[in-house]
Design a protein around this nucleic acid. Structure first.
Lengths: 273, 273
DNA sequence: ATAATAGTGTCTTTTAGACACTATCGT
DNA sequence: ACGATAGTGTCTAAAAGACACTATTAT
C-alpha cells in the first residue's frame, strides 16, 4: 500500500482499515513513548504483634538516591507482563521477603501529583494488605526492611522503630517530626489508615493481621488501635454482637490466665478483598 | 569525575553522591523509558433527566482504531504537567465539551490487566463525576458524544441510546447484548455503579446529578434508579429522615400539581468528594 | 480466696421501618 | 369535590449501647 504522506497512512489505518490491519501496522510504528510516565507500585503492609499489642507497618530503608537512607514503602517499577497487583506482590517479595496472596491485596489510590518524584514523571498505584504476625520475622534486616510500630494518638500517627520516629498528621497529611518518609509515602499511609478505620466496622478484613484464628478481645484490641482508644473503652459484649456476622467459632484457646476464650476466624466471604 | 565503568558511575551517584548531585546526573542519563506503559484516564460521567426520570452516562463513539465505532468512556492519555485528575477533566472537556470541577471528581480504580488494550501496554486510571441536567445539552453530537440511559434491572445494567443497547451483568461484569463497549470500559462502569449504590446512603454525592437544588421525591427517584426499584417502594418519610443530615432546606418549588414541595440542597460538606 | 480474664444476660436508648394522616395544588 | 402530589406524625420492631452478672483460670 502506498501513501502520499505519513499522515495519510495513519488516517487510513485508523479510520479505514480493519482493526486487525490497524494493529499489525500499529505495532510496526515508532511510538512517542518518551512521553510516557514511569509507573511504580507501593505496598502498605500491616501486621499486629499480639504480645506487645502493636500495629506494625513494613518499611524499607532506601539504599540509593533519591531519598537515600530515607524510609519508604516497599514497591518498585511495574513490568508489562503483570497487572499492578501482581507487580506489588512481586516487589514486596523481592524487597522484604514477605509473600502475599493476590486475594489479600486491595488497591488504595493512584498518586500522580506533578513533582511527587524528583527524578521526573512517576506515578504510583498504592495497595493495602494485612498479614498475620507469624510472618513477622520475614522482615529481612540485611535488606533494610523493618517493621515500624504504627500508633494513633488523637489525630496523629506515630511510626517508630528504634531511634526513628515519624509523625504524621491525619488531617493535614503533613509530617510533623524530625524524620520523614520518602516521596509522598506519608499520604499513602494516611490514606490506608483512614480507609481501614472508616470501613472496618462493615468490612473487617483488617482482622487478618491476627492470623488465622483470634479471640474477641484480640479483635477489640486491633480495632482500638485504629480508633486510637484504649481497648477497654470498647464494650466486649456489644463489640462481639456487632462482629458476629463476620465470624465463625472454631474452638477454644486453653492457655492463659482467666476464663478460656473462644477462638474465631473470619468467614470465608470476608477473608478476601 | 572519572569512572572505570558505567556501573561504577551509577553506583557512585546512587550511593555516594548527594541527592542534588544524583538528580543533576540522573537527568543527563538515557533512561530505559521504552519500558514505560502508556497511561490513560477515563471518566464515568453521570447525570439525571428529571422529566424522563432517567440516569444517563456520557459515552463517545471512537472514530479511529482500535475499537473504531465502538462506544467508550471519554478519556485519553495523560501528560506530564498534570495530575491524572486534571487530565481526566481536560480530556472530558476536549471530547465532550463538558466542564467538571476538580472538587467533583472521585478516583475509582486503576486498571492494568495485561492485554486490556490491543495496542500494547496501557493502564488506565478511572474517575467518577456527577453533573446536573442543566449541562445535559453539552454532549456535543458532532464530536460523537452521546448520553446513554443507564437502567438497572435486577442485576443487569442496560445502556441504551437509539438503536444501541449495551447489557452488562453486575455480577460477572460480562457484556450480554449484541453491542459492546471498547476496552474494559464495561468493568469501569460496573465499578462506578456499584460504588455509588454501596455508599450513597452514607455519602450522597450522587444527588449532584439533580443540580443545585432538588426535592425529596427527586432524590428518592435517583436512589431508586441505583437500587433498581420503583421509587414508590421507598417510603418518603423514612427516606427523608435518613437523608436530612446531609441536606439543608432552601425554599419551595411553587409550580406543579399537588402540594408544593420543599427544595433542598446538599450541605457544603457533602457537595465535594 | 482473689485478681484477672472472658463470656452472657438484661435493660434502655436510639434508629429504622411500616403506615396512617394532613396539606396543597390542578381540574 | 376529588385525584394527585408531597409533607408530617405515630406506632412498632430492630439495632446499638450501657452495664451488671456469671464463668474459668492462675496464683
Amino acid at each position: 500500500m502506498e501513501f502520499a504522506s505519513k499522515q495519510e497512512e495513519q488516517d487510513y489505518y485508523q479510520h479505514v482499515a480493519s482493526e486487525q490491519e490497524f494493529l499489525e501496522w500499529y505495532k510496526k510504528q515508532e511510538h512517542p513513548i518518551y512521553q510516557n510516565p514511569s509507573v511504580t507500585v507501593d505496598m502498605v503492609l500491616l501486621c499486629y504483634n499480639k504480645s506487645t499489642d502493636q500495629i506494625k507497618v513494613l518499611l524499607i530503608q532506601r539504599r540509593g538516591n533519591p531519598y537515600r537512607n530515607s524510609w519508604a514503602l516497599p514497591g518498585g517499577f511495574i513490568t508489562a507482563s503483570e497487572s499492578t497487583g501482581d507487580s506489588v506482590i512481586r516487589e514486596t517479595k523481592e524487597e522484604t521477603g514477605v509473600t502475599i496472596s493476590a486475594k489479600n491485596i486491595e488497591q488504595l489510590h493512584t498518586f500522580s501529583t506533578p513533582g511527587r518524584d524528583p527524578r521526573g514523571w512517576v506515578i504510583t498505584v498504592s495497595y493495602l494488605a494485612f498479614i498475620g504476625e507469624a510472618i513477622l520475622s520475614a522482615g529481612d534486616n540485611a535488606n533494610q526492611a523493618r517493621w515500624f510500630t504504627l500508633e494513633r494518638k488523637d489525630n496523629q500517627l506515630y511510626l517508630t522503630s528504634g531511634e526513628i520516629e515519624i509523625i504524621l498528621d491525619l488531617q493535614t497529611q503533613k509530617s510533623l517530626g524530625k524524620d520523614d518518609l520518602a516521596f509522598d509515602h506519608n499520604q499513602i499511609i494516611i490514606k490506608a489508615f483512614n480507609r481501614i478505620a472508616n470501613k472496618m466496622a462493615h468490612e473487617p478484613q483488617v482482622l487478618q493481621v491476627l492470623g488465622e484464628t483470634f479471640t474477641i478481645t484480640e479483635a477489640r484490641k486491633v480495632f482500638a488501635k485504629f480508633l486510637g482508644v484504649d481497648y477497654r473503652s470498647i464494650d466486649h459484649s456489644n463489640f462481639k454482637k456487632s462482629l458476629l456476622d463476620f465470624l465463625e467459632e472454631v474452638g477454644e484457646r486453653p492457655a492463659g490466665v482467666g476464663r478460656p476464650s473462644k477462638l474465631y476466624r473470619l468467614k470465608e466471604d470476608f477473608r478476601e478483598n
